[in-house]
Design a protein around this nucleic acid. Structure first.
Lengths: 136, 136
DNA sequence: TTCAAAATTTATAATGATTATAAATACATT
DNA sequence: AATGTATTTATAATCATTATAAATTTTGAA
């Protein structure tokens, strides 16, 4: 039975995160909505189903997820952080017209090739801004 | 005479910014301190010489400078913006140990090569994080 | 099962960078 | 000098995030 939640639970356990109800629901939301949501957006979406959830829990949970590298925090010059399920390395493009944040591919070895020598690089963010095809 | 300030004035005039005293002093500070200062750091440094300067003026001025592309705003995942005199394209590396933000070279054509097709890219930020040679 | 310690969650208030607003001052042009 | 415009200032407001401590839930041993 419940394959769906078992998979999500296992993702948490693999990262050494205890699978509480709220953590499962937040991870489920992130897996289903690859729209780079903000903490507030997640909070609002979950409030419908989990009336007792608090904003703090969302913030706490996202902090743990980020620390354990389940998600990646995006700070593309806005005043609020956005969150992305970590998969392949990729860049982010923000359309300054409609606000949408797009993913775009970047080859991992290309990213490695620009690393400054003698520095230990642990995190790589590429943020481009401009106008998306829809708005052009 | 006063070559120094004439040069700074001209930089402002070239970008269509009227060269008020405070704007000249802020640009002078940015030219002399390529340390990616925050608005607050600039405000504090200038307060010594210009006792009447207000924080708002620093914020206003940095906003104009950014808009006219005299400086570049850096948002490398901190809660405050930093400012960089715009010169050649380059990446930024933040040492998570000592907090220093380093510049590192990126070839302009390499940056162009990773642009997603059909998007009009107007701004390119590359932010790496990790440990710098000093802290290693 | 029961109980105590640990982990998680909640409610509330605080923080702090940035922005909004409107008044005051400086500047430019006739 | 007078007038309109641009700049600067002081003050208060905003708002995402964090701090704190109490409440609740979970866990694991007895």
């Amino acid at each position: 039975m419940n394959d769906h939640y078992d998979k999500i639970k296992n993702l948490l356990i693999q990262k050494n995160i205890r699978p509480s109800m709220h953590r499962i629901k937040i991870l489920e939301y992130l897996l289903a909505n690859e729209t780079h949501p903000t903490a507030d957006r997640i909070y609002n979406a979950l409030s419908a189903e989990l009336p007792t959830v608090s904003r703090m829990t969302v913030y706490n949970t996202l902090a743990i997820f980020t620390e354990r590298e389940l998600v990646h925090e995006i700070s593309i010059g806005e005043n609020e952080s956005r969150y992305d399920i970590v998969t392949e390395p990729h860049g982010h493009f923000k359309c300054t017209s409609c606000g949408t944040i797009y993913n775009f591919d970047i080859k991992a070895d290309l990213l490695a090739s620009i690393e400054p020598v003698d520095f230990k690089v642990m995190e790589r963010d590429v943020y481009f801004k401009g106008i998306c095809p829809k708005c052009l």
